[in-house]
């Protein structure tokens, strides 16, 4: 099993609903977020391109964050989800430094926090909160090893890209272009 997410940049309107839904679902303290939205503009008026991207931990196959963690707090669970055991984390920040996506932050409690793909919801057969709330239905989630999963199906029919492929981390968030 390999969990992954595909996000359709042709549909995303950059509204940040994914951010608020993650914050409320996961009870993230005010001032912090596990996901965020970027806006990229290219060209000169009136020949312009605009791309919004909802970004988060890429749950990479090759995980510098797990490698650099001195306590084993950062680890990979079933389906390739990268998690942090809060009790084991000493807040040293090595993982934050090693992440090419800047996807981790130090929580006010001291431990490092990040996207979990809402694994507490996956157990009940639900999608991550961001996927479930998106008003443009631009996010697809599922098991890449299952060719019938929403993420596999949409990726089979669309062009896609990943962020910072040069980092060699084999990220599992795919942007449909």
């Amino acid at each position: 099993m390999r969990y992954a997410m595909a996000i359709d940049t042709k549909k995303c309107v950059g509204c940040s609903d994914c951010v608020v839904a993650c914050q409320t679902e996961n009870n993230i303290p005010l001032g912090y977020a596990r996901d965020w939205v970027t806006e990229t503009i290219n060209g000169v008026y009136p020949s312009l391109q605009l791309e919004f991207r909802s970004e988060r931990c890429n749950h990479c196959d090759n995980t510098p964050c797990v490698r650099t963690c001195p306590t084993g707090a950062s680890h990979v669970i079933e389906g390739g989800i990268v998690k942090v055991t809060h009790e084991k984390c000493i807040g040293c920040g090595a993982c934050i430094q090693s992440c090419p996506y800047d996807a981790r932050y130090s929580s006010p409690e001291g431990w490092v926090d990040k996207c979990t793909f809402c694994d507490h919801r996956l157990k009940d057969g639900q999608n991550p909160a961001c996927v479930e709330v998106c008003p443009t239905h631009c996010m697809y989630f599922g098991d890449l090893d299952d060719s019938n999963s929403p993420v596999s199906k949409v990726m089979a029919n669309r062009k896609w890209k990943v962020l910072a492929p040069e980092a060699g981390t084999s990220p599992q968030i795919f942007y449909l272009i």
């Binding site: 549909k11 309107v13 509204c15 009136p46 312009l48 605009l50 919004f52 008003p135 443009t136 239905h137």
Partner: peptide, 30 residues
């Protein structure tokens, strides 16, 4: 909300959008 959702569904079905705006709005980019 309802209109944004339906526009997204229509984008999947290949809708052609014409946007008139002095600003390159989000939907202008689509």
């Amino acid at each position: 909300n309802g209109q944004v959702q339906e526009m997204s569904e229509a984008i999947d079905k290949g809708i052609s959008i014409i946007t008139v705006d002095p600003r390159f709005s989000t939907v202008a980019s689509k």
